[in-house]
Computed example of a mutant assay.
Amino acid sequence: MSDVMMRLGLYKFAVSSAAYQRLSRVTSYRWARQERIGTNDALQWTGLGPDTVEMQGVVFPAVCGSTGEPDRMRLQASIGIPLPLISGTGRVLGLWCVEQITETQGAFVRDGAPSRQEFQLRMTRYDGGLRALLPF
């Protein structure tokens, strides 16, 4: 049995390396509002809005993973292309753009290395179509 919780591109979020404790997804929907006199506003569906995912997790380098896990996340995000997001059960969640990675270190040991690294990753679903991925 695999301990992979989620895969973003080639990076694996796993119980044995960088496990996330919290995952939240916000999906927005756009409705244009037209004011009317003497009655409620008229609403018109204008399409899907942004779809965002935030992950919060922790790495304990002395127990599992390494102090380099957040840097590996940054390396994957720095490729600069939308990345496939796949759940540990194999469900493909589409292409996602990493917008921000935050790292907090604490509980330092003698050489200054952290024994606890918290991370937060924010990404937005990419819906630009395959043509937008072409370099020309």
Rank of each mutant, 00 (worst) to 15 (best):
Gly9Arg: 02
Gly9Thr: 03
Tyr11Ile: 11
Phe13Leu: 03
Phe13Ala: 00
Ala14Arg: 11
Ala14Phe: 08
Ala14Gln: 04
Val15Leu: 08
Ser16Gly: 08
Ala19Phe: 05
Ala19Cys: 06
Tyr20His: 05
Tyr20Cys: 01
Leu23Trp: 08
Ser24Trp: 00
Arg25His: 11
Arg25Gly: 11
Ser28Gln: 11
Ser28Val: 06
Tyr29Met: 13
Ala32Leu: 07
Arg33Asp: 13
Arg33His: 13
Gln34Lys: 12
Ile37Ser: 09
Trp45Lys: 15
Pro50His: 10
Asp51Met: 05
Glu54Ser: 09
Val58Ala: 02
Phe60Asn: 02
Pro61Ser: 03
Val63Lys: 14
Gly65Ser: 01
Gly65Thr: 04
Thr67Ser: 06
Thr67Pro: 00
Thr67Arg: 04
Asp71Met: 14
Arg72Cys: 06
Met73Pro: 03
Arg74Tyr: 02
Ser78Ile: 04
Ile79Gly: 10
Ile79Ala: 03
Ile81Phe: 06
Pro82Asn: 07
Leu85Ile: 11
Leu85Thr: 05
Ile86Lys: 09
Gly88His: 02
Thr89Pro: 08
Arg91Glu: 15
Val92Ile: 11
Leu95Ile: 03
Leu95Trp: 09
Val98Trp: 00
Glu99Ser: 05
Glu99His: 09
Gln100Met: 11
Gln100Cys: 01
Gln100Asn: 15
Thr102Arg: 10
Thr104Arg: 03
Gly106His: 01
Arg110His: 14
Pro114Ser: 04
Arg116Pro: 06
Phe119Arg: 04
Phe119Pro: 08
Phe119Met: 04
Gln120His: 10
Leu121Met: 14
Met123Phe: 03
Thr124Ile: 12
Thr124Lys: 13
Tyr126Asp: 06
Asp127Ser: 15
Asp127Gly: 15
Gly128Ser: 12
Gly129Arg: 01
Gly129Val: 09
Leu133Asn: 03
Pro135Met: 00
Pro135Gly: 02
Phe136Lys: 15
